[in-house]
């Protein structure tokens, strides 16, 4: 009788701690349990922490949304975008201008902001996606700077000082204004972004991105329209960024061009790269690291940015796929 095909040994999984931990949660039931526990932690945290911590965590959740958005572009589609803050700016400024200068209701302005960001994605992506990756990187950087300079030079965007007194949104007569309110808003957005990222990853489009990232020519030979799928990555990434920007603007109540500088784009990219491009939990981890890290290193003052830069360099040299890399065969 022929030998039966070897079965994976039951009981003790092999591998190092991370792999074992990973294997322990590798069943739908346990994974759901883990999700519920994390969700519970997310809900309970602001009640247990000071206002300072809540504000920092809110910022971290904003970065989760932005990083998951950039991850679609960089991690999934493999396009280096150095001007991601531009989409963040488009979302924030559209809301600021419409609500403050045209008297729009916040919720009514959201579709316009999303539309503007998607349009920006098409405008930036359309002519550039045929370029080599390093040209693409520099063109996105150029676009990012153009958006910032434009915001600084136009009157409608409030010039260098930006827009202030952006009204806080209300929902059925209840104003979203305290720091805990905004914590929950961003927590909900982060959860939504997480679910959307996961669904995109598993979708037909997600697989198309994977093929394009690994071998464009082969992907095209298989009938994938590479320009269309790359453009889709841009537009989806832009919408994530705009969502972040929309709620960022009402959270702070004021925006200025300097919130959307090249450094902002780099910080978001850094989070994605540190965590692990294409890996959702890794990217979330990265977002928390770039927001909480500087807070923890506060006593080092200006050195903390240097520490971060060196860390990024070391990660690229010794662990180029990030702290929590993607494994997909």
């Amino acid at each position: 009788m022929a030998n039966p095909t070897p079965v994976a040994p039951e009981g003790r999984p092999r591998g190092n701690l991370a792999q074992r931990l990973y294997a322990a949660f590798d069943s739908p039931g346990r994974r759901r349990a883990l999700h519920l526990v994390l969700l519970a932690i997310l809900i309970v945290t602001p009640w247990l922490s000071s206002q300072y911590v809540t504000v920092i965590l809110t910022n971290a959740l904003l970065y989760v949304v932005l990083c998951l958005g950039l991850n679609v572009v960089v991690g999934y589609a493999g396009l280096l975008d150095l001007g991601y803050a531009a989409f963040f700016a488009v979302g924030a400024y559209t809301i600021g201008i419409l609500t403050q200068q045209f008297g729009f209701n916040f919720w009514a302005a959201i579709p316009f902001a999303l539309l503007a960001a998607a349009l920006a994605g098409v405008i930036i992506g359309g002519p550039t996606l045929r370029l080599r990756s390093d040209y693409l990187a520099i063109v996105t950087l150029g676009f990012g700077e153009i958006v910032r300079f434009t915001a600084r030079n136009l009157e409608i965007t409030g010039g260098a000082s930006g827009l202030s007194h952006i009204p806080e949104p209300s929902l059925f007569g209840w104003y979203i204004d305290s720091s805990i309110d905004f914590y929950y808003v961003f927590a909900a957005l982060a959860v939504l972004a997480y679910i959307a990222s996961q669904r995109l990853f598993d979708s037909r489009l997600g697989r198309a991105w994977l093929y394009v990232r690994h071998d464009e020519d082969a992907a095209e030979a298989m009938g994938i329209n590479r320009v269309a799928v790359k453009l889709a990555a841009y537009v989806i990434g832009a919408i994530f960024g705009a969502v972040g920007g929309i709620f960022f603007s009402v959270n702070l109540g004021a925006i200025s061009p300097e919130s959307f500088s090249f450094q902002q784009s780099v910080l978001i990219l850094m989070a994605v790269v540190l965590g692990g491009m294409g890996k959702i939990p890794g990217v979330i981890l990265g977002a928390f690291i770039v927001v909480l890290g500087p807070e923890l290193l506060r006593e080092f003052d200006t050195l903390r940015l240097l520490i971060f830069a060196v860390l990024l360099l070391l990660i690229m040299l010794f662990r180029p796929s990030g702290i929590w890399p993607e494994k997909r065969s």
Binding site: V74, G78, L80, L82, S133, D134, A137, V266, L269, V273, M277, T302, L303, L305, L306, F308, A309, V310, L312, L313, M316, L317, P320
Partner: peptide
């Protein structure tokens, strides 16, 4: 891959900039 070396170059740029900043 091209993406990795581009990000490495970006990291070098940040190291130089922040060293001067510090």
């Amino acid at each position: 891959p091209r993406l990795s070396i581009l990000i490495t170059a970006l990291a070098v740029s940040l190291v130089l900039q922040n060293a001067a900043l510090s």
